[in-house]
């Protein structure tokens, strides 16, 4: 049987260009997002895709797992970490571009209860017997857990609450423990319980920022995406006024200057 290799090659090449070639209308970027930033990231994606012709794929998870996956070749273009260490370690390992690093959000902690009238806008309840479980994110792996532990220590309450601590693997799971009522109290991210400066449900105490080290969340462009226009313009969008406005509306603080 006669096979026309040239024709086959041409057909394959045409197919390749059609399906995988440069898209004239915009690029695509896959963004690894720390789970505490999930809600804000969804809103940012929506606004970004309206404003540009690019498309984003958001992937949510823990920063530690993303670090391991990126180190082993995961196809992410941008990494929005919950901390500063992991983006920096990626830069050291030449997996991320050092000039792209900036703090996109400062996290805030809230002591929250799913029920009304449990938390009275102060830390008083922590010093009482009115709860049997206090949920925090695991301080070994989650920046919000580190901050929660610092708050408890600063308030000299560790001995009182230690036996009542339960740990979520990340701030999403910590929120889940409290919102299902399995833990009466928990230190969660402000972004999880506030919308436009209004508490969505339950009762809360906004933890003053001076009780813990700032929770700086850094973004970084991964080396594989240095020429990905979607990834580049998404990072620009994050630092833009519109982007910052959205981030703030989810209860995050921002650095005073554009942090790059």
């Amino acid at each position: 049987m006669y096979i026309d290799f040239y024709k086959i090659f041409r057909a394959l090449a045409t197919g390749f260009v059609l399906c995988c070639g440069v898209n004239a209308h915009g690029d695509e970027a896959t963004v690894a997002v720390a789970s505490n930033f999930m809600l804000a990231a969804n809103q940012l994606e929506e606004a970004f895709e309206l404003e540009t012709e690019h498309k984003l794929n958001l992937v949510f998870g823990s920063s530690g797992r993303f670090y391991a996956q990126i180190s082993n070749g995961a196809p992410f273009d941008v990494f929005l970490s919950a901390d500063q260490d992991k983006p920096r370690a990626l830069i050291e390992n030449k997996l991320a571009a050092s000039n792209s690093l900036f703090t996109y959000a400062l996290g805030s902690l809230v002591l929250w209860s799913h029920a009304e009238d449990v938390v009275n806008e102060s830390s008083d309840v922590l010093n009482s017997d009115r709860f049997s479980k206090l949920a925090i994110a695991n301080e070994r792996v989650a920046p919000y857990g580190v901050a929660a532990e610092e708050v408890i220590t600063t308030l000299n309450l560790m001995t009182q609450v230690r036996s009542r601590l339960v740990r979520g693997e990340n701030i999403s799971q910590t929120f889940q423990f409290v919102s299902t009522g399995n833990a009466e109290l928990g230190f969660v991210a402000r972004s999880q319980v506030y919308r436009e400066d209004t508490l969505i449900s339950g009762s809360a105490w906004d933890v003053p920022a001076n009780l813990h080290n700032p929770i700086r969340q850094d973004a970084v462009l991964l080396t594989r995406a240095v020429e990905n226009t979607a990834a580049l313009s998404f990072l620009e969008f994050l630092a833009s006024d519109r982007g910052r406005e959205i981030i703030q509306s989810f209860g995050y603080e921002l650095e005073n200057q554009h942090g790059i």
Partner: peptide, 25 residues
């Protein structure tokens, strides 16, 4: 992971401990 709460000696089993080790690099 869903119902444990990661309490040492109470609910932190080996599989969770491995997960934490990986997450903590």
């Amino acid at each position: 992971l869903m119902i444990g709460g990661n309490i040492p000696g109470e609910t932190r089993v080996v599989s969770v401990q491995i997960y934490d080790h990986v997450e903590a690099l």
